[in-house]
Design a protein around this nucleic acid. Sequence first.
DNA 1: ATCGTAAATTAGAATTATTCTAATTTAATG
DNA 2: CATTAAATTAGAATAATTCTAATTTACGAT
Lengths: 139, 139
Amino acid sequence: MNMNTNKHIDVALELLKESPLKVTNQRNDIIRILFKNGNCHFTAEDVHCEVQKLGLNISLATVYNCLNQFTKHKILKSVKTSCDKIYFDTNVTSHHHFFCKTTSQLIDIDSKNIKFSKLPKIPGGKKLQSVEVVVNITD
Amino acid sequence: MNMNTNKHIDVALELLKESPLKVTNQRNDIIRILFKNGNCHFTAEDVHCEVQKLGLNISLATVYNCLNQFTKHKILKSVKTSCDKIYFDTNVTSHHHFFCKTTSQLIDIDSKNIKFSKLPKIPGGKKLQSVEVVVNITD
DNA sequence: ATCGTAAATTAGAATTATTCTAATTTAATG
DNA sequence: CATTAAATTAGAATAATTCTAATTTACGAT
Ligand SMILES: [Mn+2]
Ligand SMILES: [Mn+2]
Ligand SMILES: [Zn+2]
Ligand SMILES: [Zn+2]
């Protein structure tokens, strides 16, 4: 059972408080939904469905606003896959993903389980931002 | 100057003939546009703009149909990036990409310039389909 | 060459995820 | 409590892509 305190939720709420974002009921509720099960991947619709299931009245626009603001302020990060929806990731540390094309499910790959022995030279005048590995799998 | 023969175009036209797809004027024209400059990355809109520029009358729906059919039959492949459009790639061999977020431009990374010294175990019951690396860069 | 038919093309409508608009409400500060 | 910038909201708008259904075309068989 969920105890009344949850480390992941508390850490995220603390990040929210430390950010320049205002602490609203909607943001509190959304953070509780997102972080209640530790590292997870969600679409905006997933979050909105959960909001409804809990009987909360938060508009889809607010869900999008929150997810985007949280991403901008490093409380979440976003992941693009070969499917057409944006996934939001509660794990903001540097890591990679399996993407199962059958189930449209993202699975974390810990950074220590992917190592490069060779990386290409960055094109002249550009600077490196991130290296993203997606290992596509099927059933 | 472009000679009247072009290796890349000829190879792609040959793949089209060998495929179960019918050889139509539209497919011929689109292949000539796609492959005239060797390895390239295009959105459907890019292709349709070029179609218009050449005074060809091919509908956007047909451009999408062709690109999707070509992808299904391995004449093209598609690449997803952090931007919201699908890119089609004339290089169907296994390789990776730089994606410049400033210019929304894809640049090929030859397979031999990325090597892994460690890859994660595939989750039970699933099978590996592909490993895609995107190196995000900015100006 | 002509025919028959499945596949391809097309214009425009529909869909889907996401963002925008502009009116209203709220959080946080003094 | 008053002020005000930020957040929320419903609904409209946008943008990429797909779908629909009518028409045309490719191409193997006659
Ligand atoms: Mn849902
Ligand atoms: Mn264009
Ligand atoms: Zn993740
Ligand atoms: Zn490429």
